[in-house]
């Protein structure tokens, strides 16, 4: 099979600056223009295309980018990512309905709370390794959901309704029936996160994460403060999850604990691995495909998830490194080890 990742990377390396820029610009324009390209070839029968673009597609792309920092960059298996998404959404829900703060004021609070919970979970849990970390994070995700179900202050099992929409921005109105502004806001957030992740990847944190992923002990011996960078990876992932949750709550207007089940964590993880773990661009493509597929085949009302499961098994068996894997050089080096 042709290696799409390498073919793309070679083209990119040999392309002139103009070519690169025009490709990036046209890609970004295409993504922003997607809500207008509602035609039978790509649209989603059975649900509104614009709202599908926001949730699940856009939201899963953003969440996968966040989880990719944790799982892909630093190799820490996190099965409870939904917890940070839930914390962001509930912060928006509680503060939005009980105080006069608007979306823009709540967003940093939501991210801050998600980061704080990332530290609280990460400080003890990140001393564990591999699958132990996986089960502890999974437990954390479930605990957050169970607390949301049982705590009457945040609505219990009925959740929170009547969450306010963000105030108008550049004359665009945020309404439930018009998800386009939400989608554009989400794309902007995603691009910002992507840019930040790319910047970090080539600097000290990125190199530290690479070292931790490849060999924790060696990294520690070489003087990388592994624990510190692991917590940072966790906290940054949490911040992205919290921001996603906050925006999600302000679009969906009412949240219930069942929206934040383990399945979301698993789906986001599936997006990361499916797209090509560790390669942010691949992860975004993978997440877009995995989130889009079940909506595209919604006409198969009953076996829709069944097909999804089969596709997951097939793709993983055909391309175990994901659709667009990490650079081959690095893989080769880690195999030489």
């Amino acid at each position: 099979m042709i290696n799409l990742r390498d073919a793309g990377a070679t083209w990119w390396e040999n392309a002139s600056k103009l070519k690169r820029r025009s490709l990036v610009v046209s890609l970004v324009v295409f993504i922003y223009a997607l809500p207008f390209l509602n035609n039978p070839l790509i649209n989603t029968p059975g649900s509104m295309f614009e709202s599908v673009l926001f949730y699940p597609i856009g939201m899963f792309v953003l969440l996968s980018l966040g989880l990719n920092i944790v799982v892909g960059k630093s190799g820490l298996l996190d099965l409870g990512f939904v917890a940070f998404f839930a914390i962001g959404a509930y912060t928006m829900g509680v503060l939005g309905t009980r105080t006069n703060l608007n979306f823009w004021e709540i967003l940093p609070i939501a991210m801050g709370l998600a980061m704080l919970s990332g530290v609280l979970l990460g400080a003890p849990a990140l001393r564990l390794r591999g699958d132990y970390l996986a089960i502890v994070t999974l437990g954390f995700g479930e605990i957050v959901r169970i607390v949301a179900v049982n705590e009457e202050f945040i609505g219990g099992a009925r959740g929170i309704a009547g969450i306010p929409t963000p105030p108008d921005l550049f004359g665009m109105k945020f309404e439930i029936l018009n998800p386009k502004p939400y989608y554009w806001l989400l794309v902007t957030m995603t691009l910002l996160v992507y840019w930040a992740v790319r910047r970090m990847a080539v600097r000290r944190p990125g190199r530290a994460w690479d070292a931790i992923r490849q060999d924790d002990d060696v990294a520690q011996l070489m003087g990388v403060p592994t624990f510190k960078y692991k917590v940072w990876a966790f906290v940054l992932g949490a911040a992205v999850g919290g921001a996603g949750g906050c925006l999600y709550a302000s679009q969906i207007l009412s949240i219930v604990p069942d929206q934040f089940s383990l399945n979301v964590s698993i789906l986001v993880l599936a997006c990361v691995v499916f797209g090509g773990i560790g390669n942010p661009f691949g992860v975004m493509v993978g997440a877009a495909i995995l989130a889009y597929l079940p909506e595209r085949i919604r006409f198969l009302t009953q076996p829709r998830q069944l097909v999804f499961g089969i596709v997951l098994v097939l793709i993983m068996n055909l391309r175990p490194d994901g659709l667009l894997p990490r650079k081959k050089r690095e893989k080769f080096e880690s195999e030489m080890k």
Binding site: V71, L77, I266, L269, A270, V273, F274, I277, Q302, P303, Q305, L306, F308, G309, I310, V311, L312, V313, M316, N317, P320, D321, G322
Partner: peptide, 23 residues
């Protein structure tokens, strides 16, 4: 393959079986 790829394959099987029995 990496452990994570196998894990996702397992998740795929799990979804497939649950959905088959749900239907």
């Amino acid at each position: 393959a990496t452990k994570l790829a196998t894990l996702i394959s397992a998740i795929g099987v799990s979804i497939t079986l649950v959905e088959a029995f749900r239907i």
